[in-house]
């Protein structure tokens, strides 16, 4: 239980440091939804943008695996879900993060970190909506 807190703090510090270092070194905001989108979009003239985005996304995937290799932390248990619910969730997350220009990292960690009011509003809205969705799903619809 105590480990949950120390891991959360340690993980948060790593996320914050990675975001800050990306900004200080190459001047970019570590917003995952935006970087993921740019890694796949094929606008011409932005090849170098695309390249670092791809490499960053690969790093996020590799880092997630690597942590479990070097630290004594088990891979999260697989709890399956209705396929349609997963697909609907994915669609909403993808659509919403593009329309709102950011997700937990871009708005939550970097945007609030830059004291952007826009990001404070976005983060409050998605946190509140997510909380209400879980309450609805777990306590009223099940």
């Amino acid at each position: 239980m105590l480990n949950d807190y120390t891991n959360a703090i340690g993980g948060g510090l790593l996320i914050g440091l990675a975001s800050l270092f990306l900004f200080l070194s190459i001047g970019r905001i570590a917003g995952i939804s935006g970087i993921l989108w740019r890694s796949l979009s094929v606008k011409s003239g932005q090849e170098s943008e695309r390249l670092w985005s791809i490499v960053f996304v690969v790093g996020v995937c590799f880092g997630g695996w690597f942590l479990h290799v070097i630290a004594d932390i088990p891979v999260p248990e697989l709890v399956t879900e209705n396929r349609w619910q997963i697909a609907l969730s994915g669609l909403l997350v993808g659509f919403g993060t593009r329309l709102g220009n950011g997700c937990t990292s871009g708005h939550g960690v970097c945007g609030i970190g830059r004291l952007s009011l826009r990001s404070v509003v976005a983060t409050s809205v998605f946190m509140l909506t997510a909380v209400l969705t879980v309450i609805l799903m777990r306590h009223f619809l099940s």
Binding site: G11, L14, F21, G59, G63, F66, L67
Partner: peptide
């Protein structure tokens, strides 16, 4: 740098839960 930051970021996500 992008690779390094990505890896640290991913490790942070996995460590944090």
């Amino acid at each position: 740098i992008a690779l390094f930051c990505g890896i640290i970021f991913g490790m942070g996500l996995a460590l944090s839960g």
